[in-house]
Design a protein around this nucleic acid. Sequence first.
DNA 1: CCGAGTAAGATACTGTCAGTAGCTTAAACG
DNA 2: CGTTTAAGCTACTGACAGTATCTTACTCGG
Lengths: 197, 197
Amino acid sequence: MTSARPTRRRGAALDEAILQATIEELHAVGFRSLTMDAVAARAGTAKNVIYRRWPSRGALCVAAYLRMLPTDPEDAPDTGSVRSDALALLQRANDRMSTPVGQILRELVAGIQGEPERIRDLREQASRAGVAVWLKVLARAVSRDEVDPSALTPRVATVAVDLLRNEYSLNGATSVPNAVLVEIVDQVYLPLLRSHG
Amino acid sequence: MTSARPTRRRGAALDEAILQATIEELHAVGFRSLTMDAVAARAGTAKNVIYRRWPSRGALCVAAYLRMLPTDPEDAPDTGSVRSDALALLQRANDRMSTPVGQILRELVAGIQGEPERIRDLREQASRAGVAVWLKVLARAVSRDEVDPSALTPRVATVAVDLLRNEYSLNGATSVPNAVLVEIVDQVYLPLLRSHG
DNA sequence: CCGAGTAAGATACTGTCAGTAGCTTAAACG
DNA sequence: CGTTTAAGCTACTGACAGTATCTTACTCGG
């Protein structure tokens, strides 16, 4: 790919090519093993060109990661009961986290400690949308009189997925079994909701 | 320290000196910035001597970290109500996590991804005792008829501290404000316990 | 159409650090 | 007292982030 490039790319086009190469490289080897040389080679450019645009390996990879996320807001499940709605959301989250992309996110979070700038970049995207979906599911449950309005706080709404995230941070890499999701919902989330009101 | 050592240390004595030097170095610069050269220098020995004992930087630091933890089982608070017991435990956990040692633990967890061996070493210690304390507090609450026995499961018992851990994994380094602890207890933990029974 | 400025591209370098290798020498042990 | 083991020393390798320098292509204003 390095050979025989017709024209010399500039500006946004080059930005794009580098981010694309970074995404491919992240998928191929993950963040931990990603090297700037490899990205430069894949993009058919040189390292210093990359450093003119992003200050560090972490910054580049966070930018690339954010670029690979779906931009359209996710739809909240509407199955008719909080239990199955919550389970559906939790399973979706679990699927995402056990995906290669989920793995990349965890490597990224682990790897950019000490770059608070990057952490902020990541966090604002990471699950701001997530809160909304849970609140939406709860709002419907409230309108069904399944749940008391006092449960409509971010803290309460996201308890289930917060606990799931905790499982991942303890266990490292592997996927969380479905039984654990059910446990979280039946032993914690539903009892908690029931007690509100 | 390297100069004028009377005798050449061997076996357990040398192990001990290296671990001690590692602990000091962890306190001084943290895991991320800890170098094997620095440990060797501080211990007054050579790098290959260390590598004869521990296979990697991660392994050495995990061993040193485990060595610096208190070994005596922690006492469960007994204030007369679940609320203040839980708050006390949560504050204690928060204090520990915002300590330099807590910071070291987080750097360690972040840094040894990809060494599952080490993760296992860490995890078995990390909070096995923690579960017991929460169960103990809950058991007392049960005997006071504050809480139903069905809440006496690890999953339910540790919800509060699991949520706290989640705060840390999102926020990176800083300490969690007390208001958040109170929120976790009052909005989540107590309602959850109340609903059991 | 042309010349100045800008940024891409190529290459080579620095500095840091994990982990390794080989030798010398002190000490433990029979 | 001689053999074996491991400590201590020094130097090396290889990987990689980040930097510097120079050449060369493209852009754009005039």
